[in-house]
C-alpha cells in the first residue's frame, strides 16, 4: 500500500479514484436522504460516503486525503451530528408525546422526499455523524499505517 512519503505514480488507481469518488458520494447521500423511503438509512449511507476517504487515500496518499478532510473538523462535526440527533429527538418531547417521536409528519404526500416530519432530519443527523465519524476513524488508522514508529 502506498506510503505518505512516496509520491503517487499509479495512474490507474488515481483515475479509478477520480471516477468512483463522485459516484460513492452521490450514492451515499441518496441513501441517507431516502432513509425513510427505501432500504438503508443514515448509518449505511454515512459509511458509503466515508468510503470516499478511502478512495482519495488510495489515489492520492495520506497527505492529500488528510488535507482534504481535516481530521479536527471531522471530529467536531461528529459531535455536531450527535447533538443534532438529540435535538430532533427532543423535539418529540416538546411537541408531541415522547422522546424520538416523529413530529410534523403531516407535511407532503406519502412517498415524497419531504413527507416524513422529523424522522427525515434525525436520519440526516445520523448520516452526518456516521460519515464524519467513520471518515475520521479511517484517516486515523491510515495515519498510523504511514507512521513507522507505531
Amino acid at each position: 500500500m502506498s506510503n505518505k512519503n512516496i509520491k503517487v505514480k499509479d495512474y490507474i488507481i488515481k483515475s479509478a479514484a477520480d471516477f468512483f469518488t463522485p459516484i460513492g458520494l452521490v450514492l451515499g447521500l441518496y441513501i441517507i436522504l431516502h432513509g425513510h423511503l427505501s432500504p438503508g438509512g443514515g448509518f449505511q449511507g454515512g459509511v458509503i460516503v466515508a468510503s470516499a476517504v478511502v478512495l482519495i487515500y488510495l489515489g492520492y496518499g495520506y497527505e492529500k486525503s488528510s488535507s482534504t478532510f481535516k481530521p479536527n473538523i471531522l471530529k467536531k462535526s461528529e459531535a455536531i451530528g450527535a447533538l443534532m440527533y438529540t435535538f430532533f429527538a427532543l423535539l418529540g418531547i416538546f411537541y408531541a408525546a415522547n422522546f424520538c417521536r416523529n413530529v410534523f409528519f403531516n407535511i407532503g404526500n406519502p412517498g415524497d422526499l419531504f413527507s416524513s416530519g422529523t424522522i427525515f432530519l434525525m436520519n440526516a443527523a445520523v448520516g452526518y455523524k456516521v460519515l464524519t465519524g467513520v471518515g475520521f476513524l479511517i484517516l486515523l488508522m491510515f495515519g498510523l499505517l504511514g507512521n513507522k514508529e507505531a
Binding site: I80, L83, T86
Partner: peptide, 10 residues
C-alpha cells in the same frame, strides 16, 4: 449526560 458529552467534544 449524553448531550453534555457531545457539547464537551465541541
Amino acid at each position: 449526560l449524553f448531550i453534555g458529552a457531545f457539547i464537551v467534544a465541541l
